[in-house]
Each structure stands twice: as C-alpha cells, then as structure tokens.
C-alpha cells in the first residue's frame, strides 16, 4: 500500500508539473512573439524558444535571439533564422559616366600616336577620326577609344585601298 501511495503521489506531482508547464510555454511563446519583428515565428517547448523565419541581416538575427533570451522563463534559444543571400550587383558600365576631359583626350592621343595616316579631333563628347586605315588598324582605333571610354565619330575614316 505504501508503494502505491508513493506512486500515486508521484504521478499526481508529475501531472501537476506538466499541466503547470504547458500554459507556461504558451505564455512565454506569446510574450516572445510580441517582442519579435514580423517575419519571425516563435515556438516554445519546455522553456526552449525556437525562432524561425527570415530576417534582414545578421544584426537582426542577433537582436532576435537576444530578445528571446531576455524573456523570463526562456532557458535556451534555438536559432533557425535565415538571412537572404547577398544579391550580386554589377555596377553599370563606367563609360556611361566618364566625362570627355583632358585626361581622356590625352589617352586617345597617346594610343593613336603610332597609327599612321589618321588625324584626331575632339568635338563635343566624341573623338572624330579621319584619314585612311587598314581594317586591322580601324579595329585598333576603336579599341583604343573604347579603353579610354571615349565615343567615336569615324564617318570620315576611310578604308585604305
């Protein structure tokens, strides 16, 4: 009889412990959820808070964990939060914003110096090339202009016969 009593008491105690535990988890969950930013889902089981969802960055992640830890009754925090992968941004072509200045003109003149039979003038934002060239040199000229990020006017550049 003694054993039965003890067992009964133990079962009773456990039941009380469990039943008193359950609403507590739910309460903690509610409290933590209220503190966290939208997008984060909180679930609490046996005092362990699990955070899921996506946050903006690692700082937001750390902050979310800190908030959960600070809540009374939270024994531990499982951090399942994710941060979006960084999006690779390719900058627009630099030539779009390169001004036609003395430096650019100098680069064009420097490059074209050794190509015989042509003259270069600058009009507005363009290098105006005139004269006669071989097709190989024509390509070289265009490459030199592109490297200097200078627009071209080769309407007066003729093919060497």
């Amino acid at each position: 009889m003694k054993i039965t009593k003890v067992t009964l008491a133990a079962v009773l105690a456990l039941t009380v412990a469990f039943t008193s535990c359950k609403p507590k988890d739910a309460d903690i969950e509610k409290a933590v959820q209220a503190k966290e930013t939208t997008g984060i889902t909180v679930s609490v089981k046996d005092g362990v808070a699990t955070l899921t969802g996506e946050v903006a960055d690692n700082a937001a992640k750390a902050k979310a964990v800190e908030l959960a830890k600070a809540e009374k009754g939270v024994k531990d925090v499982v951090n399942n939060l994710t941060v979006p992968a960084p999006v690779a941004v390719t900058p627009p072509p630099a030539s779009m914003t390169t001004p036609m200045d003395a430096g650019a003109m100098q680069k064009v003149s420097d490059g074209l110096k050794d190509i015989k039979g042509i003259t270069v003038d600058f009009a507005g934002d363009k290098a105006v090339i005139s004269g006669e060239v071989t097709s190989a040199n024509r390509m070289k000229i265009m490459q030199i202009l592109a490297a200097a990020k200078v627009k071209s006017d080769v309407s007066k550049l003729m093919d060497k016969k």
């Binding site: 030539s95 390509m139 490459q143 592109a146 080769v154 550049l157």
Partner: peptide
C-alpha cells in the same frame, strides 16, 4: 571585337561603347 565589326560594318555608327 570581330563580332562587333560584323554587326556594325566598319564600326562606323558610333552606337556601341565596348569597354571590355
């Protein structure tokens, strides 16, 4: 560059800045 020369004969249009 060869393809550029092909698409725009003599690369004369001045409408492409190929800064490669």
């Amino acid at each position: 560059w060869a393809q550029y020369a092909q698409l725009d004969p003599n690369m004369a249009s001045g409408d492409l800045m190929m800064n490669i």
